[in-house]
Amino acid sequence: MITVESLTRRYAGFTAVDNVSFTAQPGRVTGFLGPNGAGKSTTMRVMVGLTAPTSGSATIDGVRFADLPNPGLEVGVLLDASAQHAGRTGHEILTVAADTMGLPRTRVAEMIELVSLTPTEAKRRVRNYSLGMRQRLGIATALLGDPKVLILDEPANGLDPAGIRWMRDLLRGYANQGGTLLLSSHLLHEIEVIADDLVVIGNGKIVASGTKDELLAAAGTLARSTSPRDLADALQQAGIPSTLAGDGSVRTDADPARVGAVARSAGITLTELRSAEGAGLEDMFLSLTADTQREGVAA
């Protein structure tokens, strides 16, 4: 389990992480979301001891990362797949990591196979790797010590669709076996598919956290109708605020049962009625972080 308590990191003039607290539970995938520069990476760097917190703490099963005797065996970390010596081969990078952790060298070949790098690719220097290959190598390094906790910053970045599917299955399997997984991503769809719990951060502060179901339930209902304007009017009269989107869908905070009842009593034919889960995470993300978005997206 990862526990972050009242974590604050200040730089000269600004606060990158502001009193952040959350936990990532074993057996669950915790998605860590936020716009660029929201403080995700800083929080993750503090967790693994690369950045000192100004105040507060981050612990792994109650122990500070820096106090773990052999951290590679307990926490797998991937913060930046490009942060490798370009003149080393993938195989060498894994060998160095395995040696540091005191693992048998056979582990290296196992990991290379697990992340689907070919032996030829593993003998090439990282300088010649694509981002996707670096990402695979980074995952291999993180999983090398068979840790019970994984901290991954943007692991799907640069992967092709098949790679993203592969990564998703790998991580899901990892969590199902009881592993603790903290995952940051901008790829909202990825997070939505894989995460059990969500932590949303904006301008260094937590703006929402909870299970994905809870958070998305708050995202409301999406309805389509043959006459969307009538539906919006009917909802309006029933005292339910709604928005009519350009694609003809009507969104509201009310739950689907109420929207259905309103539509029936108004005699409106619905062609689609569901909780706004599909696009929900994106909407939730944008509305929660609206104040902190660079583009100033309206909620």
């Binding site: 693994v48 690369l50 930046d80 942060a83 990078i93």
Partner: peptide, 12 residues
């Protein structure tokens, strides 16, 4: 070369 990210997480 930024390999310190790995080095210092394996040996804090």
């Amino acid at each position: 070369q930024r390999s310190g990210l790995t080095t210092f997480t394996l040996v804090p």
